[in-house]
Nucleic acid binder design. Structure first.
Lengths: 142, 142
DNA sequence: GACGAATGCAACTGCTATTGTTACATACCG
DNA sequence: CGGTATGTAACAATAGCAGTTGCATTCGTC
């Protein structure tokens, strides 16, 4: 696949599910549609389940389903569920070997990047999974 | 270094330069302060020079300098100069093997991510390098 | 209870991007 | 000319991630 594949795969799958919320999908089905592997699907979707966005069931008639209404799942939920930190790296990785000017500056740069990160999340919160799903999708009986 | 090192290094260096705009710095100096390698510095700063944010001079008294006033360089300029595309991957990488429903959905997801990317750049345009530099920096005679 | 079908999970393999490093050509200034 | 800087190419080392295989577990159905 390509860059940003986790986020892309998650959005793709969720948007697909938004069309037919009651249908249960297996990771094999999802993997086929997304052009990837069932295990990869389970890895990504597992994170979404931990965040309460999806529910999964084992066994014969098992599979994946939305755990909340599609218009109640925002892109921010997905983004945060995947532990994506696009702008700012994980915090508290300051290198103590630098002089005081540098550590101050590094902290300032990190603060700025954190602000950007927060803005990004706020922006993501404005769009829901339902918004992602094509309005004129003739294949779904939503 | 860590994640987002290019952007981090660029902001760090530019913010440092914003304090003393006239001082010429060698890539060795910058590398020392940033805890990395002169060649890495030249790689990253080269991109910024291509974008017209920095100027460099070879030879004995050479080095790097701001090419524009610090308050005229925004984070968006830096971000775009580095060819960073955090949210949306490079466009037009659709896989033609999928059915029409999937390609439509993929295009929709890509469109949404592109919108987010644009929002991010707009947000970045609101902050300048001068804003990043600490206001109370006693080491700089700005 | 046995069997099939699904998730859950761990381990391993490649691939790719990025950083770090070395080496060398080039340019500028005294 | 010599010293000092950038510019650039080539390579090694690393890290993250997709992909894959294998197996345990769980649930429904026969």
């Amino acid at each position: 696949m390509k860059r940003n594949s986790r986020l892309s795969l998650a959005l793709h799958t969720l948007s697909h599910m938004a069309g037919e919320p009651h249908r249960v999908r297996t990771s094999a089905d999802i993997a086929d549609h997304a052009g990837t592997n069932p295990v990869v699907v389970r890895r990504v979707l597992g994170k979404l389940r931990e965040a309460g966005l999806l529910s999964s069931e084992k066994g014969h008639a098992g599979g994946w389903r939305l755990a909340k209404p599609a218009d109640n799942i925002t892109l921010a939920d997905v983004y945060l569920a995947l532990d994506e930190r696009l702008v700012s790296g994980s915090s508290s990785d300051v290198e103590p070997t630098l002089c005081s000017v540098e550590t101050g500056l590094q902290k300032r740069v990190a603060d700025v990047l954190n602000d950007i990160e927060l803005s990004l999340v706020e922006r993501l919160r404005e769009t829901s999974i339902k918004d992602v799903h094509p309005q004129d999708c003739g294949y779904c009986h939503s």
